[in-house]
């Protein structure tokens, strides 16, 4: 009996002592956190994508409060939330609702429709695939389809299509540009379409038309039909490749209808 009482008492005593120690430590080493930081963190997307140049959303929130960065640097946050953050900070929102969102597009639709030069048996990483004889696609501008961009996207906005090329899901993209940084082919670009129908050229090949036709079923052959069809003259051909000027494009979709190789796509 005595032993039990002793055991219980000693454990309780130890517990009490450590509890007091912890209570004292939490008071002693307490760090005052700005309540605004907590609020701002709630409005930030929390994906820690790093596009602002800071380690993550928490450090971005701190930097905002300390006035060391600008709200506009966050590309992932929605306009609505930015408005709220601006209210917390007592500043005017940098981009009201007028600013059009930038969206990444992967400008290649090749995949299985683009011929293979050889059977690639290396690592499943695009940066590795391009090291062997310049990639296994006949077209040297083609996506090598190993999905590195899919893995780095913090917003799960890129999906592999059945054809073996990844595609950005427009409404999920938060313009952090991480995919652009890893793509060894440099075929991912940011576009800023204004209209409801967001069209883009799904090809990056600067080869001549005949060469493109030989390599790929869905490549831009620079035939110029879209240029003629465009009512606002937003499309030009540069280096054997159609290019859309998004300042002009109204999203009428006429170019999509005339394109013979179905290179022009909707997001």
């Amino acid at each position: 009996m005595k032993a039990i009482i002793f055991a219980v008492a000693s454990l309780a005593g130890l517990g009490l002592a450590f509890g007091l120690l912890l209570a004292w430590a939490s008071k002693k080493f307490h760090i005052e956190e700005d309540p605004r930081v907590v609020k701002i963190k709630d409005f930030l997307p929390g994906a820690n994508c790093g596009a602002c140049g800071l380690a993550g959303c928490a450090s971005f929130a701190e930097a905002l409060v300390e006035n060391k960065t600008e709200l506009a640097f966050c590309v992932a946050c929605s306009g609505e939330n930015k408005q709220k953050i601006a209210e917390v900070l007592g500043i005017s929102s940098p981009d009201k609702d007028t600013q059009v969102k930038k969206i990444a597009v992967i400008a290649c639709g090749g995949g299985t429709r683009c011929k293979n030069k050889f059977d690639y048996q290396g690592l499943e990483d695009c940066r590795s695939a391009v090291l062997y004889l310049g990639g296994h696609k006949e077209c040297k501008y083609a996506c090598v389809g190993q999905g590195t961009c899919i893995r780095v996207c913090p917003f799960d906005a890129i999906k592999m299509q059945p054809e073996g090329v990844p595609k950005v899901i427009g409404h999920k993209c938060r313009s952090c540009e991480k995919c652009i940084a890893v793509c060894p082919r440099n075929i991912i670009e940011m576009i800023q379409p204004k209209g409801k129908n967001k069209v883009y050229i799904n090809c990056s090949s600067q080869d001549k038309g005949a060469q493109v036709m030989k390599n790929c079923k869905v490549g831009c052959i620079a035939c110029g039909k879209c240029v003629k069809a465009c009512p606002v003259k937003a499309i030009t051909i540069e280096n054997n490749l159609a290019k859309i000027d998004y300042a002009e494009c109204i999203g009428c979709k006429k170019c999509i209808d005339v394109c013979p190789t179905k290179v022009i796509c909707l997001i």
Partner: peptide, 13 residues
């Protein structure tokens, strides 16, 4: 393991 390939990837990045 494809050690050389991994090292090549690391070098490329």
């Amino acid at each position: 393991r494809r050690i050389v390939e991994y090292i090549r990837l690391i070098k490329a990045v």
